[in-house]
Design a binder for these strands. Structure first.
Lengths: 208, 208
DNA sequence: AAGTGCTTTTAGCAGTCGCTTAATTTTGGG
DNA sequence: CCCAAAATTAAGCGACTGCTAAAAGCACTT
């Protein structure tokens, strides 16, 4: 764990990339240090030299994704104009854009969340600021508690977006087009926008 | 693989139960035949005697869940009355009831869907009839294609329900109550009903 | 030329993995 | 009681696991 662990070190970056690719194929328990080293074209011991343990390696993969995630959302929210509805749609677009650009990320988070609790606290810690941002944006529209609270709306929209990347491939047989195609992704994006409108409309209607 | 593999055999059932419990803790690759045998209080070799391989064991766990799932939904849909909106809410209740009674099931499916493709075809095969049922129920309300098609509505609602069981525990820190409590589950159920109303209202409004 | 601090490699320990084989025990019908 | 079938057991094979210690390779300064 002496080397520079970030992406500026070429070897560490190659290991991180390899682990990232392999994680989605077998989860944490399916990931082996030798498998990572082989795919990275690097000696097995270097995995532990740079990341200390398998656990540490996986944590760095997760943290790297969340760093990019937060940076992408901050860049997008800085340019948002219009009323709340328009800003929510812009936020959804930024969110979907990131997932489209990092398709393994939602699958990784879901796999880690759905089993094994070793990384729950880490993921929860990184999700918190994103959730707080949405909670603040919905202040005044969504009630503070109950089934319409921001936490439910947040979980619903993020769940709808992220579950697409794991569930859609299952439907390959009964979908008329490839669910992994760009056209299918665009259609799904339109669905999410439609869903946000439906929720927003009902939120406003309920408040009256 | 000579013994009677179904639940009528006490030993096989004990093995299935143990595998079911352990699967959610470490996914398929975290599951070991010895771990299963130990938890079931049974000899390691019996796992292979009854299920042939680890893969076969996991498949039986999945199939057992889907058998119960289909049976529960069929029992519920047989008693559904009222207009479409009421029947959809009854379907959601039956769906949530099943997940509440089998909290490991949605997490297992999500973990399997999010990584490793060894079980994608099996899960997809079992999801198909459930999807077809919803598609048929929404015939005339949802268009056949595009972002409002039944397949999107189905994925959205099922994704919202199932993702709760994996994502909610992550929010334990910033939730004011235990997300695994019955009260939190009730609140989430109310949210899903509200969401279905929002979608239904907008579907009808868009059609006019 | 010797020394320094990082990076990489080699080799291996001790444990677990899926799975099999063969022997043993248990079971139930004739 | 006997015997065949079914169920269970102990033992182990070969491969793989996370991880480590020690040595070697390397660019660099003195």
């Amino acid at each position: 764990m002496n080397g520079r662990t970030d992406e500026r070190n070429e070897t560490a970056a190659k290991i991180l990339d390899a682990a990232d690719e392999l994680l989605v194929e077998g989860g944490v328990n399916g990931l082996s240090s030798r498998g990572v080293a082989t795919r990275a074209g690097v000696n097995n011991a270097l995995v532990f030299y740079y990341f200390g343990s398998k656990q540490g390696l996986v944590e760095r993969v997760i943290e790297r994704y969340y760093q990019r995630h937060v940076a992408a959302l901050e860049a997008a929210t800085g340019m948002m104009t219009g009323d709340l509805r328009e800003r929510l749609h812009a936020l959804v677009d930024a969110y979907v854009d990131f997932m489209e650009a990092h398709r393994r990320f939602p699958r990784l988070v879901q796999a880690l969340a759905a089993s094994g609790s070793d990384f729950h606290e880490l993921i929860g810690r990184h999700m918190t600021p994103l959730f707080r941002w949405v909670e603040h944006a919905l202040d005044g529209v969504a009630p503070a508690t109950g089934p319409l609270a921001a936490r439910h709306l947040y979980l619903t929209v993020s769940g709808v977006v992220t579950s697409w990347y794991s569930q859609a491939p299952l439907m390959a047989g009964l979908w008329d087009r490839d669910p992994e195609s760009a056209a299918a992704a665009d259609e799904r994006r339109a669905h999410v926008h439609w869903l946000v409108d439906a929720m927003y409309d009902k939120l406003v209607a309920d408040a009256m």
